[in-house]
């Protein structure tokens, strides 16, 4: 554990709290892509199957439980409790175009070819693109509420901080995982355009609005 990973995990946790709090307080999931949230639930489910097979630390176990529980809670809020506010007309990204290639790639490029490992690899690949339905939704409506922008910024920062963690770990322990690194870089690059808009607009008190 180093400061980069810890702040990365905290950014991830903060993103989830921002999202749940926004939906709960406003009693609405307007502007939130249910499809991205379904993909994240799939990511955590396939990655954290190792909860029952391997133990790393109480911290890891606790965080895995939190990520799993909150991802399903988010889906419940979007698709059940506040279903009427779900903006499904703008949430039209075809998620099979992300799930199937991620699965195919996981079957081809992995560290070991066994069930748990392929699912772990699938979760890494899928996570790198899971935000696309949400970004697609923002681009389709041309704007995002500030709170949604804060959520996206925290969520994007998390993997960017993990990249610093991986550089640090390589320098200090010689540890590296190419699959996670390449996917993490792809994931962070996907947020770059958003990061630019966030820094130039949202932080200056303006609404995140895309140029027409």
């Amino acid at each position: 554990m180093n400061i980069f990973r810890l702040t990365g995990d905290l950014a991830h946790l903060i993103a989830i709290i921002i999202l749940l709090h926004k939906i709960w307080k406003s009693r609405s999931c307007a502007g939130i892509s249910g499809k991205s949230q379904v993909l994240f639930a799939l990511v955590y489910t396939t990655r954290y199957l190792d909860l029952v097979t391997s133990y790393v630390s109480i911290y890891n176990t606790f965080m895995k439980f939190v990520f799993l529980a909150t991802s399903y809670a988010t889906i419940y809020l979007i698709y059940v409790k506040f279903k009427a506010t779900y903006d499904h007309n703008h949430d039209t990204f075809r998620i099979e175009f992300l799930i199937l290639p991620s699965l195919a790639l996981a079957l081809l490029i992995n560290h070991y070819f066994n069930f748990l490992e392929v699912l772990w690899t699938f979760s890494i690949y899928l996570e790198s693109v899971a935000i696309l339905p949400q970004l697609f939704m923002v681009s389709k409506t041309g704007e995002a509420e500030s709170i949604t922008s804060h959520y996206l910024f925290a969520l994007g920062s998390y993997r960017a901080l993990y990249i610093l963690n991986w550089i640090y770990r390589y320098a200090t322990e010689g540890h590296y995982d190419l699959i996670a690194i390449v996917a993490g870089v792809v994931q962070t690059v996907l947020y770059c355009d958003f990061f630019y808009l966030y820094i130039t607009k949202v932080l200056k008190g303006k609404k995140l609005q895309l140029p027409a």
Binding site: Y55, V56, M63, H111, Y112
Partner: peptide
């Protein structure tokens, strides 16, 4: 266990 060493992150 090799797997533990590989995936000790979240």
């Amino acid at each position: 266990d090799v797997r533990d060493e590989l995936h000790d992150e979240l």
